[in-house]
Structure formats: C-alpha cells, structure tokens
Write a protein that binds this DNA or RNA. Structure first.
Length: 203
DNA sequence: AAAGAAGCCAACCGCAAATAA
DNA sequence: GTTATTTGCGGTTGGCTTCTT
C-alpha cells in the first residue's frame, strides 16, 4: 500500500496546522447535517482542504459536543492512574472510561503531569534509599535491596504518588477544579461560541 | 522589562488493523 | 486471496503561554 497516496500531505492543496474558526464551523455544520461518515470523502464533500484524518482528529478531540474541556479532576486523575496501572499506554481504552475525555488529552495529561511527578517521586525514593543504604552500610554489613526502581511499577506509584501530587494542584478546594474549566481556553474561542454560532446558522 | 526555560496542548506522523473492492 | 483504502492508535513535535531569573 502506498502511504503517500493515503496521506496527501504533499499535495499543496492540503492545509495543515491549526484549524481556523471557519474550518471548524464548516466541519460542525457538515457533520450536523450529514453525520460522521467516511472521513476522506467527508473532507472533500464539506469543501475542507484537510485530510480525512485531520478532520477526524479535530472532530474527536475538539469539536464533538460531548467533549469535556478543562482541568482533570482529582477523581479523574485517580482513575487514569488506576487504569494506566492496569493497561499501560492504552490511551483510547483508558479514555473510554472517562466520559468526555479524549485519548489525546489523557495522553498529554499523563506525559506532562503524572510522569513528571513519578520521576520526582522516583528521585525522592532513590535519594532516601541511598540515604538508608549509607546508613546501613555504616552500621552493618547487611545486604540491601538497593536496586534502582524500574521505569515505574504500577502498584507502588499509586501509593507513593498521590500524596505529593495532590499538594501541587493550584487550589486546595477540589470544587474549584471544575469551575475553572472554561478559563483556559483562551487560545482561539470557546466551544460554546462555536456551537452557538452553529445554531445561529440555522442548522 | 527582557530573555531564556519550562509547561502545556493541538496537531502531525507512521504504523497496524480492519474493511472494502 | 490480494490489493487498496480507511480508521484508529500511540508517539512525537511545534509553537504558544507562563514562569523564573
């Protein structure tokens, strides 16, 4: 199979990069009228100079009306950690258990937040291990389990992470997490804006 | 106030699986 | 059964924003 045929990104007609408001509206309108279909033909039929892949991604990760945007709640965070412990990097599988969240969002969240905290905790653990080992070495000859931690092991990160992690939320009041959700969408426009415009268009 | 670093997230890429012809 | 096309997934990157010095 020729991937270049499939991925028409070399075609000068194909747009890449951030979506414009106009493109979003076209896609929303088209799907509202015709439903999701074969993405490649949908892109053409809608008159979008995007690949089907790009349209699908945009729709699933951003434009769908049921996409929840904003901060991951502590409950969701817990769930993500549990499910990741169970399944590893199966983001789409994990996302299915978090209504309104996309695999991309969860993946980003994991990589930027949780992984960072795991590393910090590992360092902390290693430090305290070596301190303990130093202490033991100086006091006795008993052998220790001073092996470095693996990349991470699921059962232990759950216990070890939650305490230090929770203290790093911007606020101590969990209710504020959900209420501040709409404040971080300043990039372009809010989905509410787009959907209300879509409604104004009469579709 | 400016510059550089770090954080964050939308979007792209490549691959594999599923499906259609 | 084979080939072509589409879909879905996970990894990665580019660029914008925020923080720190």
């Amino acid at each position: 199979m020729d991937k270049k045929q499939c991925n028409t990104s070399q075609d000068p007609e194909v747009r890449k990069g951030p979506w414009t408001m106009e493109e979003d509206l076209i896609l929303i309108n088209y799907i509202a009228n015709h439903g999701e279909g074969v993405w490649n033909s949908l892109a053409k039929a809608a008159g979008l100079k995007r690949t089907g892949k790009s349209c699908r991604l945009r729709w699933l990760n951003y434009l769908r009306p049921d996409v929840r945007r904003g901060n991951i709640t502590p409950e969701e965070q817990l769930l993500i950690m549990e499910l990741h412990a169970k399944w590893g990097n199966r983001w789409s599988k994990i996302a299915k258990h978090l209504p309104g969240r996309t695999d991309n969002e969860i993946k980003n969240y994991w990589r930027t937040r949780i992984q960072k905290h795991i590393k910090q905790a590992e360092n902390f653990q290693q430090q305290s291990n070596s301190e303990i080992n130093d202490h033991q070495a100086s006091t006795s000859q008993v052998s220790t389990m001073a092996e470095p931690m693996e990349t991470y092991s699921s059962p232990c990160y759950q216990g070890m992470m939650l305490e230090p992690f929770s203290t790093q939320f911007p606020t101590n009041n969990p209710e504020q997490y959900s209420s501040c959700c709409t404040n971080d969408n300043n990039n372009y426009w809010s989905m509410e804006d787009i959907w209300s415009m879509q409604l104004l268009n009469g579709d």
